[in-house]
Amino acid sequence: MSNVELIEKINELKKEKNAVIVAHNYQNDEVQEVADVIGDSLALSRYCANNDKDVIVFCGVHFMAESAKILSPSKTVLLPEIDAGCPMADMVTADALREEKKKHPGAVVVCYVNSSAEVKAESDICCTSSNAIEVVKSIPEKDILFVPDKNLGSYVAQKVPEKNIILWEGFCITHHRVSLEQVKEIRKIHPDALLLVHPECRKEVWEEADFVGSTKQIIDFAKESGSSKFIIGTEMGVMYKLKKDNPDKSFYLLSQGLVCPNMKKTTLKSVYNALKEMKYEITLDENIRLNAKRALDRMIRIG
Results as ranks from 00 to 15, higher is better:
M88I: 00
I302D: 05
K264H: 04
V37F: 11
L254H: 08
G153D: 03
K216I: 11
D245K: 02
F63Q: 05
E162V: 08
I56D: 01
A121F: 14
R187W: 05
I219Y: 11
E134L: 03
D248M: 09
K69S: 04
A121K: 06
I232M: 12
F58C: 05
I288G: 02
I232V: 15
I10Y: 13
K53T: 07
P261A: 12
I302R: 05
H104Y: 15
G213F: 10
G226H: 11
A96L: 14
D210T: 09
L78G: 01
K243V: 10
E5M: 12
K9S: 11
D90Y: 00
Y252M: 11
E162H: 07
S270H: 03
I82K: 12
P247F: 07
D248L: 09
M1F: 05
I231P: 00
N262H: 15
I70T: 10
Y240K: 12
V197R: 00
D40H: 04
Q217T: 14
D192Q: 14
N50T: 06
K103S: 06
V77S: 00
V37N: 01
A274V: 13
K14S: 01
H175Y: 10
D40Y: 05
M278Y: 13
H198L: 14
F146K: 09
E81H: 02
V147Q: 06
K163D: 05
W168A: 00
C111L: 06
V205L: 05
A94Q: 09
V22G: 00
W206L: 02
N51R: 05
R289N: 08
S2Q: 13
N11T: 11
D220Q: 15
S129Y: 09
G303N: 02
G170A: 01
I125T: 13
G170C: 00
D83I: 01
S138F: 10
C86V: 07
K223H: 12
A157F: 01
C260E: 00
I21E: 06
L167V: 08
L268E: 04
K264C: 00
K216S: 15
P161L: 07
Q256G: 14
P148D: 02
I282T: 02
M278K: 13
N291K: 15
V113Q: 01
I82D: 05
P148Q: 03
N287T: 13
R294V: 07
N50A: 01
V4S: 14
G233Y: 08
G213Q: 09
A35Y: 06
F211W: 07
P199C: 10
I133P: 04
I139P: 09
Q32T: 05
A193Q: 10
I219L: 15
V55Q: 04
Q158I: 05
H24Y: 03
V110Y: 11
I218M: 15
F171W: 11
K69N: 04
N246H: 13
G233S: 10
D95R: 11
A107S: 13
K276A: 15
H190Y: 15
H190P: 04
K137Y: 01
I302G: 08
D297A: 03
V156P: 01
D95S: 13
D83R: 10
A222D: 01
R46P: 00
D52K: 08
T128R: 11
S116T: 15
D285R: 06
F146T: 02
Y280S: 10
